[in-house]
Design a protein around this nucleic acid. Structure first.
Length: 844
RNA sequence: GCCCGGGUGGCGAAAUCGGUAGACGCAAGGGACUUAAAAUCCCUUUGGAGGCGACUCCAGUGCAGGUUCGAAUCCUGCCCCGGGCACCA
């Protein structure tokens, strides 16, 4: 890499004399040295406080948020860089357009990832995490983000998690935090609870030979299900990536149906939820989930042993393998019967684990003729299969209808064997039957959601303690707000053990406290809360990091929130985004926030693969950003990441490709050196410049960074051709007006490079004080256009014509073209299709 | 199984409203400069056929059909890849 000659820097008034480059060779323009330029501008930005936002004084606030990283020991991943750079470009564009942009960052430093890593390297997370954060901070600085470091935060900071605990208390007081018994995955080898994602086909992900078991533990839940319909409805009003909206919609999983009552002589009626009340005449049995509370009282004396054995077996199975869908059906008959509310017949009651207690009422009616699973179950146990729907005669002839085989599950059918409802189409019948049963008090329409309550308890060490105290006299007592934060004690031994309770349960001196209500000896909650609670509100904290007496300042919050732009990965589409929406809604309902949706606009970025394959350590194809930045410079790396594919889809990182971006910057650099005040502005280049401004403006708006960069390259190629720089004419010069706007357009992508060029072009202020260039439609307009000539839809020639020529004139000229005439060949033109200034099609 | 997204040159990709397919970049080949190399610059580059040549023709956007003056783009059916959900009644 050839350094820039001193002479050149001195002539241009550059202040940077620190490097001592060798003299230039062969009179070629001095080349660009990113190491020098980038170090210089990092210093300048810090010294001039270029990226610090005046939160109180801002006239046009714009909150540009990116998903804060988990500070791993490995350091910044290329996926992080891709995400942050894309968001940073958006922020910088908005700034150039005159907004006061606030671009904060922080660290999501609590959680099982950090803790497991700490266990692996046998170090305390309390010492590990600050080192990781320091490393991340340095890496983030090096990629040139416009981050306002005055507002950095870390979720592990007591000044932060004090307010995470405060939020728990708000939910608790609002009755939205409940303690209940729930099953968890337990790995006997790790001696810890596993998330569902850590269980692979029933085995522990870290111990492939160890079967995961199920344990029942008392846990804290936030009842997010009460917000299901609101979370769903609001989605329609948000400016979010469609893909993200869909993921959330499916996750909430709304379905419409009915709850029907099957009465029994020995217990309360059994309520079942069904989306197909039209098939109730075909319900030939009932199934209860093994955990269903009525199983006990229903089971006949001689069936007890068998039913109990079955329930025990299921209880021991891990949650994940129980839910594998293609497993053979199992079940056991209770010996009891219930009355089908439609037919009045007695149907047998079974217990089977294909019915889940968490959904609906934990009981279903078995309609084997019209449900895949029920069909399979009935075949397995020889239960009656009664057809009550036939394919509708006028319905579309689908494969299913044509085969006319059971189970027939389509809605496109008419009822049979259903008494007075025979002949009704399914949809109509569903309504009519629900209404009929409702009259008798045996049913009602019902909406169900698949969304589950949010379990926030973690039997782990590395998280914020849940601020609750248990007292024998007063029961569950919240820690008073004045006593927050409940500090996480610095336990040396934070290893989980076989007991299944948090390591904090071994810290007697910590958990033994007087009850806040009565003063008697009591015991702290020893579980910590889920990391997703930390990240559910961090965007509220950024503007208010200076305050230790409030989580978020009302005035600043009103001014800066909700977030104007949030860019992040779809891997957080459901959990993080759903939880932060929920927490925001609750805080709004409690009067703490003036808005109920946290993110006005959300865009999901894509993922980067390497050489066509997913990056992984075992494949050895992980891109380490530092190495590329050291070799090519941060600006080149940033731009390459944005160039390799559409931002919202991701792309394929290939080592060979990055050189092209560097060549582009090198060429632009030499063009900047050739700028001369007195140079003639070239009309053709000027037109292309205005077209480029127009295109880049439109592209960055939609995050189409790859095509924006392509447009800049195209312009540079033309400018070099027009000015004679391409063929190395030593005396070639370029007018400033043809270069300066390009530096501004480029600045969001390559901020250090643009600053340096801007300064060399004679500007004192940062390029980010400039404003986004405007284009002039008149100057951008082409006077001559090329029109395609088709004969019968096939391209037969091209015409260059003045813009706006009439159809007749274009047809005349087309027919005069010998290449076109050959194909017309004396035939009459029957029809002409003319798209002005674009295309003419002669139909013979 | 269900719900999304995608399939375009040797490669990453463009084509924004149904209107000239392959912009931009990489790689490759050829050339210029150089004692030489690197770097740089220029030219060629979808496949096939024809012509000394400027060029011309045919085919072509996963596959098979359809709608249209005209389809990468819209419709129907199918194949493949990626992601999400997954016994949710």
């Amino acid at each position: 890499m050839s350094p820039r000659p001193k002479r050149e820097a001195a002539r241009r008034g550059g202040k940077d004399g620190s490097a001592a480059p060798p003299p230039p060779r062969g009179g070629r323009p001095p080349s660009y040295d990113p190491a020098v330029v980038e170090a210089k501008w990092r210093r300048e930005w810090a010294a001039r406080r270029t990226n610090s936002t005046d939160l109180r004084g801002a006239a046009k606030p714009y909150y540009n948020l990116m998903m804060f990283p988990y500070p791993s020991a490995e350091g910044l991943h290329v996926g992080n860089v891709f995400a942050f750079v894309g968001a940073d470009i958006h922020g910088r564009v908005q700034r150039l357009r005159g907004w006061d942009v606030f671009e904060p960052i922080g660290f999501d430093a609590f959680g099982i990832h950090s803790e497991n890593y700490a266990l692996k390297v046998n170090q305390h997370p309390g010492r590990l995490i600050p080192a990781n954060i320091a490393n991340f901070r340095e890496q983030l600085r090096r990629i040139g983000l416009m981050v306002d470091w005055d507002h950095e935060l870390a979720t592990t900071d007591p000044a932060y998690y004090k307010w995470t605990q405060w939020i728990f208390l708000q939910l608790y007081r609002a009755g939205l935090a409940e303690r209940k018994r729930a099953p968890v995955n337990w790995c006997p080898e790790c001696m810890t609870v596993l998330a569902n994602e850590q269980v692979i086909d029933g085995f522990c992900e870290r111990h492939p030979s160890v079967r995961v078991t199920q344990r029942l533990l008392e846990q804290w839940f936030f009842t997010i299900t009460r917000y299901a319909s609101r979370l769903l409805e609001n989605l329609k009003t948000l400016d979010w990536s469609e893909s993200t909206r869909l993921l959330q919609t499916n996750w909430i999983g709304r379905s419409e149906g009915a709850e029907l009552a099957f009465t029994t002589p020995v217990s309360d009626p059994i309520r079942v939820y069904t989306t197909r009340p039209d098939t109730v005449f075909g319900a030939t049995y009932l199934v209860l989930a093994p955990e269903h509370p009525l199983v006990e009282s229903l089971t006949a004396g001689d069936r007890r042993a068998e039913v109990q054995a079955y329930r025990n077996r299921v209880a021991q199975m891990d949650i994940v393998s129980r839910r594998v869908g293609d497993r053979q059906k199992t079940g056991v008959f209770t010996g009891a019967y219930a009355r089908n509310p439609a037919t009045g017949e007695s149907v047998p009651i079974w217990v089977a684990d294909y019915v889940l207690m968490e959904y609906g009422s934990g009981a279903i009616m078995g309609v084997p003729a019209h449900d895949e699973r029920d069909f399979e179950f009935a075949m397995q146990f020889g239960l009656e299969i009664r057809r009550v729907v036939r394919p509708a005669p006028d319905a579309p002839q689908t494969a299913e209808a044509a085969a006319d085989r059971l189970p027939f599950v389509s809605w496109d059918g008419v009822l049979v064997n259903s008494g007075r409802f025979d002949g009704l189409p399914c949809r109509e019948a569903a309504r009519a039957i629900t209404a009929w049963l409702a009259e008798q008090g045996l049913g009602s329409p019902q909406v169900q959601y698949r969304l589950h309550d949010w379990c926030i308890s973690r039997q782990r060490y590395w998280g914020p303690p849940i601020p609750i105290v248990y007292c024998d006299r007063c029961g569950t007592v919240p820690v008073p707000e004045k006593d927050l934060p409940v500090l996480l004690p610095p336990l040396e031994d934070f290893r989980p053990d076989a007991s299944g309770v948090s390591p904090l349960a071994r810290a007697q001196s910590w958990y033994r406290v007087p009850c806040p209500a009565c003063g008697q000896a009591a015991r702290r909650e020893t579980d910590v809360s889920d990391t997703f609670l930390d990240s559910a509100w961090y965007f509220l904290r950024y503007p208010s990091t200076e305050f230790d007496d409030r989580p978020f300042d009302p005035e600043l919050t009103r001014k800066w929130l909700p977030v104007d732009s949030y860019i992040g990965g779809n891997e957080h589409a459901v959990l993080h985004l759903m939880y932060s929406r929920f927490v925001t809604m609750v805080l709004h309902d409690l009067g703490h926030l003036p808005f109920e949706e946290p993110y006005k606009r959300f865009r999901a970025h894509g993922t980067i693969v390497k050489d066509g394959a997913k990056m992984s350590k075992s494949r050895g194809n992980v891109v380490i950003p530092d190495a590329y930045i050291a070799k090519w410079g941060a600006d080149t790396f940033r731009m390459y990441l944005m160039f390799l594919g559409p931002y919202q889809e991701g792309g394929d990182f290939r080592d060979e490709g990055i050189a092209g971006i560097r060549r582009f910057l090198d060429k632009l650099w030499s063009v900047v050196q050739a700028v001369a005040r007195d140079a003639e502005p070239d009309r053709v280049a000027q037109r292309k410049l205005h077209q480029t401004i127009r295109k880049v403006t439109a592209d960055v708006e939609e995050l189409r960074y790859n095509t924006a960069i392509a447009a800049l390259m195209e312009y540079l190629n033309l400018l070099r051709d027009r000015s004679g720089l391409a063929d190395g004419r030593p005396a070639a010069t370029v007018a400033p007006a043809l270069v300066e706007p390009v530096i501004v357009l480029l600045a969001p992508f390559a901020p250090h490079f643009a600053e340096e060029c801007w300064e060399r072009l004679g500007h004192r202020e940062s390029v980010f004080q400039a404003s986004w260039p405007a284009w002039d439609e008149a100057l951008a307009r082409e006077e001559e256009v090329e029109v395609a000539v088709q004969v019968n839809g096939k391209l037969r020639g091209r015409l260059t014509i003045p813009r706006g020529l009439s159809q007749e004139e274009v047809v005349d000229r087309a027919l005069a073209d010998p290449g076109v005439r050959r194909f017309v060949d004396g035939n009459a033109v029957k029809k002409v299709v003319y798209v002005p200034d674009k295309l003419v099609n002669l139909v013979l």
